[in-house]
């Protein structure tokens, strides 16, 4: 499998990363997601990485880039399901996931996303 499937759920995109991503796959995901945010006109992106056993600085940077790019396009990105062992490791590695919202699981991520979308539309006065 060379592509990670992106599902549309109401007004958000859901991505579940279930394989050990090699670098090219990560680049493709970044491009595909950004494209789909515009195409589908969504307000939020949920990335589930609970199957990922390792997050290195490359994946960390990719998650940050996706969050920045989607925010530029008016959609918030939330990363959910970071494993405890991964959390310990990325902190020590120095990856801060700056600008990336996180939540424990998909449920909590959805709730956070809804509240973020609400706040941002209130700020815009719509």
């Amino acid at each position: 499998m060379d592509k990670i499937p992106i599902l549309k759920l109401k007004d958000l995109l859901l991505v579940t990363i279930q394989v050990d991503m090699h670098d090219r796959m990560a680049h493709t995901l970044q491009e595909d997601l950004t494209e789909r945010v515009v195409q589908d006109g969504v307000k939020g992106v949920l990335i589930d990485i609970s199957s990922l056993e390792v997050v290195d600085s490359f994946i960390g940077r990719m998650l940050g880039n996706i969050a920045s790019a989607t925010r530029t396009l008016g959609a918030e990105t939330i990363v959910v399901g970071i494993r405890p062992s991964v959390a310990i490791t990325i902190v020590e590695l120095g990856v801060t996931l700056e600008g990336v919202h996180t939540a424990l699981n998909v449920d909590k991520g959805m709730a956070l996303l809804q509240s973020l979308i609400k706040t941002s539309s209130q700020e815009k006065g719509t």
């Binding site: 056993e53 390792v54 997050v55 290195d56 494993r83 062992s85 991964v86 310990i88 490791t89 990325i90 020590e92 590695l93």
Partner: peptide, 8 residues
Amino acid sequence: VEQTKIVT
């Protein structure tokens, strides 16, 4: 945790 650190 040790596994994750070294693999990373």
